[in-house]
Amino acid sequence: MGDEEMYDIVIIGAGIAGLTASIYARRAGKKVLIVEASSYGGQIINSPNIENFPSYDNVSGIDLMRKTYRQAERLGVEFVFNKVLKVEKKETTFLIVTDDGDFEANAVILASGTQNRRIGLEHESEFMSRGVSYCATCDGALYKDKVVAVYGGGYTAVSGACYLADICQHVYLIHRRNKLRAVGMPVERLKDFKNVETQLSSTIVKLNGEDKLESITLATPEGEKTLPVDALFVTIGREPNVNFIEGLEKDDDGYIVAGEDCKTNIPGLFVAGDIRTKKLRQLVTAASDGAVAATEALEYLQGA
């Protein structure tokens, strides 16, 4: 072991769960570090109007998270904006390896949320922002009058295809099953668009292009087929951000198994927010997890 800086608690992720955990842990006098890969705020910053958070009639995700971040900062929570590469359990401590320095902690709270599910194809990362996008409503406007494809069959995919149909010249909706998963209004709306072509029972097997996406290759029941497209919107769901730690018990969808006490199968490692197995994923339940995980971590530190 080297000269890594030592913390009582390292929290991974600066969304509402991680920030709440940090506030509780700091108020208990612990030395706390939050490691965040992007910037603070988490997924909620995409929501302009939050109307179900107690004490606010209406607040934007950005405003709420800015306040929460300032609150944690004022209390003395430390922040580094690095990507976590590995969390390793040592004898009594944890080693947190990041892309810019390592840290050591007596307890770890995982609050890294979820990310858009990738297809897992070659060139996918390389073409990000050069044709491959994970959000039709965010990036659709950049492909006005172009030919685009949407991958997925759920609500987000179908409503994304409807949104793009208004902007783009042609939209392919590609889904691996023989029937769309989405039902109701967006599916009905989809039928009104003459420029949407649905390709069922098909999977994308290749992303082609030099410096940017130029076409996609599909495996269809009739064989392989290549479609020239300017953009591909991948909307095949979300997945937990936990590929940096081994030995954690997860459910079939990759979420970390833990009860209301936020304890994982690894002693000293707690989990809070959207990455925990739970029924309701909301701001308040994530904040609640943060408080519980911090309290359990404090109890663990006392016994350690």
Partner: peptide
């Protein structure tokens, strides 16, 4: 400049793009 996702920070020097970062970037980063 083929910006296909925002936010996107494109770094220029002497009239040429030399690097870019996609997605939200913290101050320190």
């Amino acid at each position: 400049y083929e910006v296909g996702t925002i936010p996107c920070l494109v770094m220029f020097k002497n009239g040429e793009e030399i690097d870019r970062k996609i997605g939200l970037q913290a101050t320190k980063k």
